[in-house]
Design a protein around this nucleic acid. Structure first.
Length: 321
DNA sequence: AAAGGAACCAACCGCGAAAAC
DNA sequence: GGTTTTCGCGGTTGGTTCCTT
């Protein structure tokens, strides 16, 4: 049984939008908002268009502060770096470039940037196309710069046993602790992600990255009383030592209710507090992309490439102050 | 000047996830 | 708890413009 169509396909207009339609849609949304229902919107606005089409038109062209025209060198770099990090997650990449839309960036990548980067050598796939829930590469560094020892606790704690049933937490219920200011040069794709790290003073430190607001925001749930757990268990509270950074390069993923994590890749290091952004130079990105055409892909759906992005010398960073 | 191909980009489509019922 | 509806995403298509011969 197929899925019901979102609109009467015989009764909706397709193809390019006319200025009149644009004006109608813009005026309606500016006056009434979307009402949280794109499907009903075209009828209310007096448009013979599919709701999806209206949504796309609004998001890509009509909403305020859309930037058109040439991409800057800086934008090129951001796109390239993020593509190298997360693959073709255009909406996430777009969230890092104010005014740009995912469609815009996708088109730009496919028609120009890819060629600019690779010259004549075409590529066929991103370096590690990140399926929505499997084995996204994480290269994170956690930095703690509080002057005192603090004991952050986290909502959502998963035991090592892999008995996780649902690692996805839809929204963050608790604000980040005052001690912690989180900034990030790394995007954790999708609304929630699971993060594992080892503490410097505790052997096992587990975090939940539970909320992504703008694509770059990573927020840890925290309360000062207990560690709540998706499996209902209580867990010890991790500690950070002043001035130390925890970093790891690793892969995680979840599949059919069980956590998959390649512990071979998990490395805990102590670092000086220097910012190390996720950044590749063009040559490195190019090398990465070219290698993706020669059978050196990080496979989606379970394959973990030993070493991950190793060799590119970069790490993401979550700063906690 | 015309034809054909390449490049560009707006829009569509189908799918998965989340929300609503 | 199961089903339906809606949203949002990424891949793809098709029309238009630009470039080359």
């Amino acid at each position: 049984m197929g899925r019901a169509p979102c609109c009467d396909k015989n009764n909706v207009k397709k193809g390019p939008w006319s200025p009149e339609e644009d004006a109608k849609l813009k005026e309606f949304i500016e006056k009434h908002g979307t009402g949280g229902n794109w499907i009903a919107l075209p009828q209310k606005a007096g448009l013979r268009r599919c709701g999806k089409s209206c949504r796309l038109r609004w998001l890509n062209y009509l909403r305020p502060n859309i930037k058109h025209g040439e991409f800057t060198e800086h934008e090129d770099r951001v796109i390239c770096n993020m593509y190298a990090n997360i693959g073709s997650r255009w909406s996430i990449i777009a969230s890092q470039l104010p005014g740009r839309t995912d469609n815009d960036i996708k088109n730009y990548w496919n028609t120009k940037l890819k060629k600019k980067l690779l010259g004549s050598s075409a590529i066929t796939a991103p370096p590690h196309r990140a399926p929505r829930q499997y084995h996204r590469p994480l290269n994170l560094m956690l930095q703690h710069s509080s002057s005192s020892l603090c004991q952050p606790t986290y909502s959502g704690f998963f035991p090592d046993t892999g008995s996780l049933h649902d690692p996805v937490i839809p929204a963050l219920a608790l604000p980040p602790p005052q001690d912690f200011m989180l900034s990030s040069s790394l995007v954790i794709p999708n609304a929630s992600s699971l993060l594992h790290a080892h503490g410097t003073t505790q052997q096992q430190l587990h975090h939940h990255v539970v909320k992504e607001e703008t694509g770059s925001m990573i927020v840890f749930g925290s309360d000062q009383q207990s560690c709540s757990s998706s499996d209902g268990g209580a867990h010890s509270r991790p500690q950070f030592s002043h001035g130390k950074e925890l970093s790891f390069d690793g892969y995680y993923g979840y599949n059919n209710g069980s956590v998959e994590h390649d512990h071979r890749l998990l490395q805990v290091q102590e670092h000086q507090q220097t910012q190390v952004p996720v950044e590749y130079n063009y040559d490195e990105i190019k090398q990465l992309l070219v290698s993706s055409t020669t059978g050196n892909l990080h496979g989606g759906g379970g394959q973990v490439h030993d070493g991950g992005m190793e060799g590119f010398g970069s790490q993401g960073k979550v700063t906690m102050m």
